[in-house]
Design a protein around this nucleic acid. Sequence first.
DNA 1: CTTATTTCTAACTTTTAGGTTAGTACCTTA
DNA 2: TAAGGTACTAACCTAAAAGTTAGAAATAAG
Lengths: 110, 110
Amino acid sequence: MEKSQKIIFASDENCPVRRSLNLLGGKWTLLILFQINERIIRYGELKRAIPGISEKMLIQELNFLVEHKFVSKKAYPEIPPRVEYSLTKLGLKTLPIADTLATFGLESLT
Amino acid sequence: MEKSQKIIFASDENCPVRRSLNLLGGKWTLLILFQINERIIRYGELKRAIPGISEKMLIQELNFLVEHKFVSKKAYPEIPPRVEYSLTKLGLKTLPIADTLATFGLESLT
DNA sequence: CTTATTTCTAACTTTTAGGTTAGTACCTTA
DNA sequence: TAAGGTACTAACCTAAAAGTTAGAAATAAG
């Protein structure tokens, strides 16, 4: 049997790995997507789900993810305010990335 | 007021996604691992394979990856010098991550 | 009345990433 | 003689990312 050889191209700015990392390579980005996952989750829940993240970074990332259509946001005109976040169709497609990171962490890191 | 509380699996510092990102979340880290892939590659080749990376960042990341046993390094005592890098067993296990990033980039990014 | 809740904004500081320039060592080629 | 190739290291400085702190707005609970 002939062994199929993987062809690797130079990774310029158009490389899909690089384009993905440009969007998702932030320190918290994939973790936030992973935590939202398939649920509808409020801002405060999300904050508690990611201990250590600052409010600034969380809201900044959420704004970024909403702007780039990974996450959709629904705000209820209530007092105190209630805002729910969930993944869009595009956001759901990022879940395999976080899953692969989780698998690697579980299987290969001490 | 008894209300059933949604159980949230918080991503603290022990979360496998977070542990993986701590090691591999750098701007260039996964891209370098992806480019080395299953080959034995020289420093200069790798540099050409990642247009735009500075020598400082490339060597800095390579040193980090060697130190953390993702990459092995073999230097030949020749003039001009020749240094070959390849993935260790651990490094090979990171390839699915980059592959998932590549798939996402190809399928979901314009 | 005060206090708490929730989501988010703004100003400011610190930390990290990255850019630039220079240089090392030794041999080969022109 | 000089320039080129190769794989780095070091020093310096700027830009970007991330962290810290404070507070607003509206209402309800105490």
